[in-house]
Amino acid sequence: MSAPSVVLVGPMGVGKSTVGRLLAERLQVGFRDTDEDIVAEQGRTIADIFVEDGEEVFRAAEKQAVGRALAEHTGVLALGGGAVLDAGTRELLARHQVVYLSMDVEEAARRTGLNAARPLLAINPRKQWRELMEARRHLYEEVARSIVATDDRTPEEVTQEVLDALELKEA
């Protein structure tokens, strides 16, 4: 069975895609982002899916995308921020090298602006982000083999810490 070499989880805006691409480059493997898979499959943005069909429809598409990617992809895989909400997904992740990229609310505000382009943060973004993290932090920690803080660090520094944490050698 094939499996991703690394799976990145964490909140929106933490840098999963940026770090994932850097990791893939350094490991000389492919990179895949399940949010990008969903957008390509649906032909519309995640925000549009939320607005037009609701979170439940998005989460069902996300669960399918994650399951496919975990089964098919052998490189670095980045999951959407809410992918860990599904118990079946968390069960699948137990067999993989998962890294939780963490950040605090101030870092989230700096990186993303906590703006309306993030559908779950449309009203009172800082409060919403804190509530999302209270609900999700333990799930990220549950699935992770390693936790790497990203606050005040460059993507290159985070990438190196992920490699070190998982004891992976560059290709």
Rank of each mutant, 00 (worst) to 15 (best):
T34F: 06
T34L: 07
D35P: 03
E36F: 03
D37M: 13
I38F: 12
E41S: 14
E41V: 05
Q42W: 11
G43H: 11
T45C: 08
T45G: 15
I46W: 11
I46T: 09
I46R: 10
I46G: 07
D48Y: 05
D48H: 11
I49A: 04
F50Q: 10
V51S: 11
E52G: 05
D53M: 11
D53S: 15
D53P: 01
E56Y: 03
F58M: 09
R59A: 05
A61N: 10
A61L: 15
E62A: 08
K63W: 02
K63T: 14
Q64I: 13
Q64T: 14
G67Q: 13
G67Y: 08
G67T: 14
G67C: 07
R68Y: 06
A69I: 04
A69S: 14
A69L: 00
L70A: 04
A71I: 01
E72G: 06
E72H: 04
H73D: 02
H73W: 02
G75S: 04
L79Q: 04
L79P: 00
L79I: 00
L79R: 03
G80A: 05
G81N: 09
A83M: 12
A83G: 06
A83L: 10
V84N: 09
L85G: 13
L85Y: 12
D86E: 15
G88F: 11
L92P: 01
A94C: 08
R95P: 02
R95A: 15
R95N: 13
H96L: 05
H96S: 05
V98K: 06
V98M: 12
V98N: 08
V99H: 06
